[in-house]
Design a binder for these strands. Sequence first.
DNA 1: ATGAAAGCGCTAACAC
DNA 2: GTGTTAGCGCTTTCAT
Lengths: 342, 342
Amino acid sequence: MDRRQATIKDVAKAAGVSFKTVSRVLNREPNVRDELRARVQAAADQLGYVPNVAARDLAGGRSFLIGLMYDNPSESYISQVQTGAINRCSELGHHLLVEPLERGDDAERTLRPIISRLRVDGLILTPPVCDSRTVLDIIEQAGVRYVRIAPDREIDRAPYVAMDDVAAAYEMTRHLLGLGHRNIGFIKGHPEHGATPRRLEGFLRAMDEAGLATPAERIQPGFFSFASGMEAAGRLLSLAERPTAIFASNDDMALGVLSMASRQGLAAPRDLSVAGFDDIPAAAMAWPELTTVRQPTEAMSRAATEMLIEASQARGAPIANRRLAYELVTRGSTAPPRSSRG
Amino acid sequence: MDRRQATIKDVAKAAGVSFKTVSRVLNREPNVRDELRARVQAAADQLGYVPNVAARDLAGGRSFLIGLMYDNPSESYISQVQTGAINRCSELGHHLLVEPLERGDDAERTLRPIISRLRVDGLILTPPVCDSRTVLDIIEQAGVRYVRIAPDREIDRAPYVAMDDVAAAYEMTRHLLGLGHRNIGFIKGHPEHGATPRRLEGFLRAMDEAGLATPAERIQPGFFSFASGMEAAGRLLSLAERPTAIFASNDDMALGVLSMASRQGLAAPRDLSVAGFDDIPAAAMAWPELTTVRQPTEAMSRAATEMLIEASQARGAPIANRRLAYELVTRGSTAPPRSSRG
DNA sequence: ATGAAAGCGCTAACAC
DNA sequence: GTGTTAGCGCTTTCAT
């Protein structure tokens, strides 16, 4: 029940070297002869030596702890983020501390302890808390490194990992093109949202590459809402050359498209293919189920974790943002256009 | 970005006392004059002092970390456990470390680091990993305190928090009694399972208190399986005095009862009320939805956390098991008996 | 390439 | 009641 843990000195004694040499071996520092390195390693293994994190933290200022801070109400989203972070942490010899920020909590009171007491090596922030200016202020003031996942505001304020909207929209458009569609309508997102121009860009790039022109009336404004999707669909479906497919910048709008189509007696995907973006839960419950793009949540979380740990190892080297490709989720709402039609 | 954190010595200087006195105040130790206590507290607040956990750990052997170890595939279950543990941790000045044990993982390799490196003050184990003898062996050998949530095997091997089966079964029986049932059939659980006699006890106690006798033939054996529930229901429904309600020791069996009843042309709850135990997902998808008993998962997790922290504060005082009351989930499968009948 | 010394911020044991 | 002296197990200088 109480076999005392071996310390670095026990290992040093067993290997017949100074304990500093053991420290060097453990930290993969240079300037140790291979022979010694092997001897020390053997002794450590034999004693089942495991370095004490508290001591390393106290002496070296690294806690080997990554904090995950969230206030997202979706269980499955958090669960995915957590899985990615935990796994990457464990691969890199770190551990994950989970800290929910209760809605309406005093952010300062919640953050202070985890920042100052535990001195995490880095903090991962998920939406929506990653967009809270107050929270960011507190964290920055405390001098703690952080990476945001899919931030939506003040994008350039700090390192983040996000989806590659351009690539995703490009890929979705290629999917539609591959099915044989040539006349594709596009519904833009909210004009204030950063993803809006990027998704449009991906769409246009794919169309361009396919040698297809896109007349301005085929690109309709939207506001990421169900209603705006319906309205935009109404405009697109009344065009002289009616699109055989509509790609909406998010699922809410795509669902609006679906609804408007059925009002007009058009059945998806027979008369109209519809694609969305986000893969919200309702996307899989619509009829037909919506073809869409899903955020690689777990991968983003792994990336964020890795960025943090690498920066802490490099003693504060700058962190480069990363954009990960989305995953295309092909479901029933997209199909080849009816050959009878144009 | 880099305002150095205040240390205990800074506070001591500001308050004009020795740093040991500050330590006393912070740890609520006795033997400090109130005046000094106040002075120190003020200085600490003013400097925004927060004790460094690594230093406390190193010096005092307490990490202020609680580990949550799980290998449960249910997201929502884990999420509930986590919420309970995090909240209680935060209330008691601790933090939660989350460590999943991958199925088929080398338990030893996963456990070692969190036990030896981080020296958690305690470990919470959820089912099914809390029933793994190998895992328990490793943890005990490392001398780490742990509490299991709802363990199923080797119950008396270590402290645990579980449901109060007796109270829950008692309450469910009261519910049936309250609806007006007098002739209630009961289906026992698997004879090897610890909960089996407890659930029966709760049932019998409620019947006794109501002054109702329960002839032996109204208590049928079962094995926690759907099939055994059907069979037991068959026997109960062919009794001369047919029960107006059947209380099965778990949901699988209750679902079997429902199925057997409808085969015999009996509609629940009109002709027969049925109650289960566990609140498995299928319980809410059956028709009628099953009245059952749900584990207070979050509360159990809070309790486990608290037990661990209290024990660590009391320097290894023995931990007493706790049994929490279940929550009654009243749904469509139970109703008053038909007045036309007995 | 290796080792000795100092100290991280705190608690524990003992003095006063 | 309060202060002093030692470490806890490591990493960091800085010698050698």
